[in-house]
Nucleic acid binder design. Structure first.
Lengths: 150, 150
DNA sequence: GTTGAAAGCCGTTTACC
DNA sequence: GGTAAACGGCTTTCAAC
């Protein structure tokens, strides 16, 4: 189980993965070598999944978020497999959830502009049978973080 | 503007930021030093926003995603500021969007369980006046990526 | 068994072509 | 864009507690 120091290390690294072991050690009042062993253990035990670079969307001209609400009438494993494969294969789909309630699936899609979304949409409905699809555009992203509340 | 090599570098780094400069260089058919200069430039120009560690949710017992659909009746800057400050301050809110359509705002909230969501919910409605709030729980996360389609 | 210091090693970074 | 050398941090080992 994790103690307070492990949690502090995780908080630091999910905020900034470029921190040197030494810098992390200082912030948690440890010397480098026990701190290094803890980080190693957190990786081995799977608490740290990966380290990635987060890009800026504005200069890449990927400013548009679209939420796609999907209903299906085929509630079986085969359909779910096909649908899952389709969303995994489409790089515009950043997130996909199976939902409770009257919407069956929810996607967050990132595209350059409305035209690009239209192309995405046509591709999606051509790949999988969907009973009902409704799209909502985000006007503004107020918050986006990858930092879990540990 | 970005050429094909810069885009390839961005794709590699947003997938795995632990790649050494040498490893990236090999994959894009460059030697380390021009590759290093390109990465440096991509950071200076703001294409690379930051490098972070992504944690696993299961061992941290943060398995529940809740989408919160919010309507307000106060469409003014002051209210929006208060709302934005509230969601920025609440670590359970991973994403927040101002939407088009009949829902005004959409949140993705990550919590340990339903009880934790109830506590979050009470805290949220006590902080800001909301006309209508409806919550939808995700049964399953089919996809989650931070990799933009560059 | 755990911590801290010290040393080798490897990747990053810079100067120069 | 490439080469080569200096630099700094990561990783490991070992002694001390």
């Amino acid at each position: 189980m994790l103690d307070a120091i492990d949690r502090a290390i995780l908080r630091l690294l999910q905020h900034d993965a470029t921190l040197s072991v030494q810098a992390v050690a200082e912030q948690v009042n440890l010397t480098t070598s026990p701190c290094w062993r803890r980080i190693q253990a957190l990786e081995d035990q799977g608490y740290i999944r990966r380290r990635v670079a987060l890009l800026s969307r504005q200069p890449l001209e990927l400013g548009v978020d679209v939420f796609v609400f999907i209903k299906t009438n085929q509630h079986n494993d085969r359909w779910l497999n096909d649908f899952t494969e389709a969303v995994l294969a489409m790089p515009e789909v950043m997130e996909a959830y199976r939902m409770s309630g009257d919407v069956d699936y929810l996607l967050r899609v990132v595209v350059r502009d409305i035209d690009a979304y239209d192309r995405f949409y046509k591709q999606l409905v051509s790949r999988v049978k969907l009973a009902d699809v409704s799209s909502s555009f985000a006007m503004e992203q107020l918050k986006y973080t990858t930092e879990l509340p540990v």
